[in-house]
Structures are given as structure tokens and as C-alpha cells.
């Protein structure tokens, strides 16, 4: 114990994820994206809620705030306001972000707070063992939704575009190279970035499998204009035999932190008492 204590704190050695889970690929890709973007790990701030995806911050080298279910966004907002020099990235699941945290999702987008929101979207609840998530498809049968899901799934990307999000992208754990590109682009974006990451759940989602996603995800065509909001909305709503991936919408707007006079002299946490 004492020998171990002399070492700096780093990542946990073992994950709590099933073999074959999409989270493994997302973690590996995140590490690669952080390296590619040249981020200083000491300033890397990973924030999450609760769920299997929300455990990711423990499995890499970063500062970690693993808070409450659904509350990653407000916690990340508070952190960014206290120290806007931190690179704040959220890694959480679809239930965390679009279900329990839905209200925060709407309002973080309005603020355009400079946090990057990576949503592991596997269309099912994993940690609580297989109930429907807000993105589960109609008819998806679970032990709770015994006759199949009857509520229509949310369209997070369309929602974000309607809400005037400034960076809206989709990728998938099944295409790691593309995912890495999207992560780097999101990190480099100034303001709020939503990256919805389609991800298989090998244990509880027998419909949206590795194969299922692989057959459907399709990169946006060359010449696609992410500044075209109407086109972006149309693209974001595409779902079915073909699922578009890439930067679907991008716009420029002042960030929340840029508009706070109190932050003009530098991060509050670092200028405190000076």
C-alpha cells in the first residue's frame, strides 16, 4: 500500500465493461484524440454522470468529476465557469444525457458553454440491465417495455440544431478512425459541442448490433455544407437503412464564458484573492 502511494494517481487498471462493449473502442479513440489534439492532460477535465459510459473517466489519465445521474452538464458548466482554461469533456450515455439530464441538455446548448459532450448512444440502459432508453426504437422489447417501446425516440441531433447548437456531429464506435476525427474537431470547436456516438451494447441490445451499425453508418458526401441549417436538420433526421455520420451542423456564436465579464481577467479559480 505505502509503495503504491508514492505514485501519482492515474487511471484505474480494470474496466467494468463487458468484453466486446463499444465503450472499449470509444475509450481507446478518446486517448488517441486527446493525443492528436495535443491536449495537456493536467488540464483535461472529464465529467460524467452515472451509467456504464459514465465510468470512462476513471479509465484514462485525467481529472475526473464523476457526479450524479443526468447531471454531468450542470457540473461541467460549474467547472468551466470556475476555470475556463480546463478542457472539459463529458462522456456519458444516452439515458444520462437525453433522459435524466434532458432539461440540462436543452439549456447547455442555449448557453453555448464551452464543454464537449460525447454521448455514448447505445439505445438501451446497460447498467440497470436492459430497459429502454430515450433513443430506443419503437417496438424495442425489454423486461419493462414488454409490448415494445411505444414512445417515439428523441432525435438528439435535430433537437440540438433546432436549439441553435454550434457543433452537432455523429459518429460511431464501429468506425474508430472517423470517431477520432470527430472528437478532435469537437475539441477544437469553441463553444458547446455535441457528438452523438452510436455504440453497440452487446449484452442488452440485440437489435442495434456492431453489424447493424456498420451496415448503416455513412459519411456525409464531399461538399456537404454544415453551415446550412435546413439541410442539417434534414440530415439529422435521417435514420434507417442509412445513417449519416460527420459534422452535421456547425455555426459560430459567442460562448457563454466569453460573455462573462467576471472571467475577463483569467480563470476565477486561479485569480482568486489576487
Amino acid at each position: 500500500m505505502s509503495a503504491r502511494k508514492a505514485e501519482p494517481v492515474g487511471r484505474m487498471n480494470e474496466t467494468a465493461w463487458c468484453p466486446g462493449c463499444g465503450n472499449h473502442a470509444i475509450l481507446k479513440t478518446l486517448d488517441a484524440a486527446v493525443a492528436e489534439a495535443g491536449l495537456d492532460r493536467r488540464k483535461l477535465m472529464l465529467v460524467s454522470g452515472i451509467g456504464q459510459a459514465a465510468k470512462l473517466p476513471h479509465y484514462t489519465d485525467a481529472n475526473v468529476f464523476n457526479g450524479l445521474h443526468g447531471r454531468a452538464l450542470p457540473a461541467a458548466t460549474g467547472i468551466k465557469l470556475a476555470n475556463h482554461e480546463l478542457e472539459v469533456i463529458i462522456t456519458s450515455g444516452d439515458g444520462d444525457m437525453y433522459g435524466e439530464g434532458g432539461n440540462h441538455f436543452l439549456h447547455a446548448i442555449r448557453r453555448n458553454i464551452g464543454v464537449k459532450c460525447f454521448v455514448h448512444d447505445n439505445q438501451v440502459y446497460g447498467l440497470t440491465k436492459g430497459q429502454a432508453s430515450p433513443t430506443s426504437e419503437l417496438g424495442f422489447v425489454t423486461k419493462i417495455q414488454t409490448h415494445g417501446v411505444v414512445s417515439v425516440p428523441v432525435s438528439p441531433l435535430a433537437l440540438a440544431i433546432v436549439e441553435n447548437a454550434t457543433f452537432v456531429a455523429r459518429s460511431s464506435a464501429v468506425v474508430p478512425e472517423h470517431l477520432q476525427k470527430m472528437m478532435v474537431a469537437a475539441i477544437r470547436h469553441k463553444g458547446f459541442a455535441l457528438l452523438d456516438i452510436l455504440q453497440p451494447c452487446v449484452t442488452f441490445n440485440k437489435v442495434n448490433t456492431w453489424q447493424w451499425y456498420k451496415q448503416r453508418v455513412k459519411e456525409l458526401p464531399a461538399g456537404y455544407d454544415p453551415a446550412n441549417r435546413a439541410l442539417a436538420l434534414e440530415t439529422a433526421l435521417k435514420w434507417g437503412e442509412e445513417i449519416p455520420i460527420g459534422i452535421i451542423y456547425r455555426a459560430e456564436r459567442k460562448t457563454f464564458e466569453e460573455q462573462q465579464p467576471a472571467l475577463a481577467k483569467g480563470p476565477l479559480a486561479l485569480t482568486y484573492g489576487k
Partner: peptide, 10 residues
């Protein structure tokens, strides 16, 4: 939760 985040960050 914003308060929690802000206090954590200092």
C-alpha cells in the same frame, strides 16, 4: 450541480 462543479474546480 453547478455549485458542486464550481467548488470542485476551486
Amino acid at each position: 450541480n453547478m455549485v458542486c462543479g464550481a467548488t470542485y474546480a476551486g
